[in-house]
Simulated assay, not measured.
Amino acid sequence: MTKLGAAVLKGNALESAKVICILSHGRGQSPEAMEDDILRRLDAPGVAFVLPRAAGKSWYDAKAVDALTEKTKAQLSDSLDVLRALVAELPAKTPVVMAGFSQGACLSIEYAMHFGPWNGALVAFTGCRVGTLDDERPAKDVTGLPAYISGSDADSWIPISAFSEAVQELGAARARVRADVFPLRGHEVSEAEISVLQNTLTHFTESAGLPW
């Protein structure tokens, strides 16, 4: 199991951070990819970033929209345990923004639906639930949890239908949801999405309003 010491730490020191962002990478990616694709585009004083690393660069082998198998359930459980272990080692009262891209976004959504709510927010760039509507999937009451989820009608990994199902399930779980669809956007994080993360972090560091 990955512990905090094995994750990549960037930004402010954990002990003095006003907010901590756990940012999970996508399939075939790495913490370094998240640093290059997302962190370098942020202006985030007062924010500590924790970037977990998946074994073999994948949080689970199946596609997110595949029906759940026992193997996928076990892999997903192990990956969620990675996030839980990280959270357990963070300063207890510091807000946490659980964020991710693609497979990392799916993992972050599953964390919310398994273990939420918490003091902080969810930011899922191009994500959905793992599995199908026919699967038994946890759906905790996450009343009031700020949850941002984005998608595209042209993304090759997360179909717009699966994205829409995740929005509906987060809403049914009583999260405070903002959902953005970016027509024709490829499998990437746009500047508009970066702006949402920027403003979400600023909400916690400067007591500014949430961007939704």
Score class of each variant (00 low, 15 high):
Q103T: 03
A105H: 05
C106D: 02
S108A: 15
I109C: 07
E110F: 00
Y111C: 01
A112L: 15
A112K: 06
M113I: 04
M113W: 00
H114N: 13
H114C: 03
F115D: 09
G116F: 05
W118K: 06
W118A: 05
G120H: 01
L122C: 03
L122F: 03
L122R: 04
L122S: 06
V123R: 07
V123A: 09
A124P: 03
F125W: 01
G127E: 06
G131A: 05
L133H: 02
D134N: 12
E136L: 10
A139N: 07
A139D: 00
K140L: 12
T143M: 14
G144R: 10
G144V: 10
G144S: 11
P146M: 11
P146I: 06
A147W: 05
Y148R: 08
I149Q: 06
I149S: 02
G151E: 01
G151N: 08
A154L: 08
A154N: 14
D155T: 05
S156M: 12
S156R: 14
I160D: 09
A162D: 14
F163L: 12
F163C: 03
S164I: 04
E165C: 10
E165I: 14
E165T: 13
A166S: 15
A166Q: 11
A166F: 09
V167E: 14
Q168I: 13
A172S: 14
R174I: 00
R174A: 13
A175V: 07
A175S: 13
R176H: 12
V177I: 13
R178M: 14
R178W: 03
A179R: 12
D180A: 08
D180Q: 13
V181K: 11
F182C: 00
P183H: 12
P183N: 10
G186F: 05
V189C: 08
E191S: 13
A192C: 00
E193R: 06
I194Y: 08
S195H: 08
V196W: 05
Q198R: 09
Q198I: 09
Q198K: 11
N199I: 00
T200G: 02
L201H: 08
L201M: 15
T202K: 15
